[in-house]
């Protein structure tokens, strides 16, 4: 059995749905052609030569990453490989020591966090970052905060402009909530929802901003296999429905293999591989660094 086959089988058994993954692989090859055509256009997101260190600890070293329009781009790697640091650099939470981030062809260093939503970038957080004291509807509507122009006085008085903004935000929020099947929880306080739903509310809040680029920091962390597949479906649906580019960090390689168009692998702050799921799955360095060396009992005998 080749290394690549081993990897796919091993991953399939991890989430227990190999047919599903096979289906996605088939889908991806069907999509391959339009993507090559789009590669000529400017990239949605481009990182070049990113260095980031905290004191003496090097978090990222000379990382390049190109994300095409409309693709689902995964970043994987072992714990502490620098995945979240990379997302934080893209969203401007961290300022890189070197290198720059280009969003739709415009280079930034650092990315202006306050203007991020206006630039068409929305993100979720690894550890939930919902507003616990607001209802699900208000949390999702908050995703439209960047579009608000009315000042507080016109909001208090209820001038037409302020009202229109509020209705627009709520309508948009409702349609996203509907899309992610969160309608039954509309008026619940976000902090009172179970973990998996909170993750989905966060995705809804990010989508409410109508982003062109969506950054997801471990959106499936702590979920059951079923919840993970469910969320993967939502991410794919959202990409198709709203025509967005998705950059995704994930621990669960199985889900990533099925979901993403291309995968970058980080290890100790360096990018060690970049390519389609098949390429990644057969890359010896990835297998060694991230998945370990294949055990003796390949077929599972003797376990």
């Amino acid at each position: 059995m080749s290394a690549s086959n081993f990897l796919l089988v091993g991953l399939g058994s991890e989430v227990a749905i190999p047919p599903d993954i096979a289906e996605h692989l088939a889908l991806r090859s069907a999509r391959a052609e339009p993507q090559t055509a789009r590669a000529d256009q400017a990239l949605a997101l481009e990182l070049s030569g990113i260095d980031l260190s905290f004191g003496g600890v090097v978090a990222l070293k000379d990382v390049d990453l190109a994300v095409r329009h409309g693709e689902i781009r995964a970043i994987i790697g072992p714990n502490g490989a620098g995945k979240s640091s990379l997302i934080n650099v893209i969203s401007g939470v961290y300022r890189p020591d070197r290198g720059h981030v280009a969003i739709d062809g415009t280079a930034y260093r650092p990315v202006p966090t306050q203007k991020l939503a206006k630039l068409g970038v929305a993100r979720t957080f690894q550890n939930l970052a919902l507003f616990k004291g607001l209802s699900v509807l208000d949390n999702v509507a908050a995703g439209r905060a960047y579009a608000g122009r009315a000042n507080f006085l016109s909001q208090i008085i209820g001038l037409p402009g302020a009202r229109r903004e509020q209705t627009d935000a709520r309508e948009r929020a409702r349609s996203i909530i509907d899309f992610l099947h969160l309608t039954p929880y509309l008026d619940r306080l976000a902090g009172t929802l179970p973990y998996g739903l909170q993750k989905r509310v966060e995705l809804a809040r990010a989508l409410a901003a109508e982003p062109r680029i969506l950054l997801l920091d471990e959106p499936m962390a702590g979920m059951t296999a079923t919840e993970k597949n469910e969320l993967a479906d939502y991410v794919r649906l959202a990409r198709d429905e709203y025509a967005i580019t998705v950059v995704l960090i994930e621990h669960d390689v199985g889900v990533v293999m099925g979901l993403s168009d291309r995968i970058a692998v980080l290890d100790y702050g360096r990018k060690i591989a970049d390519g389609t799921p098949q390429e990644i799955a057969s890359d010896q360095r990835v297998i060694d660094a991230y998945l370990g060396v294949p055990p003796e009992n390949e077929g599972g005998e003797g376990i």
């Binding site: 203007k115 939503a117 206006k118 970052a129 616990k132 607001l134 908050a142 960047y146 507080f152 302020a162």
Partner: peptide, 22 residues
């Protein structure tokens, strides 16, 4: 109003509030 919800957003999670454009 929206301003009031921005207050709560800043209170509950300042980083997230900044990222979504509050």
């Amino acid at each position: 109003s929206q301003t009031g919800r921005n207050f709560i957003a800043v209170r509950d999670n300042e980083t997230a509030a900044r990222i979504i454009g509050v």
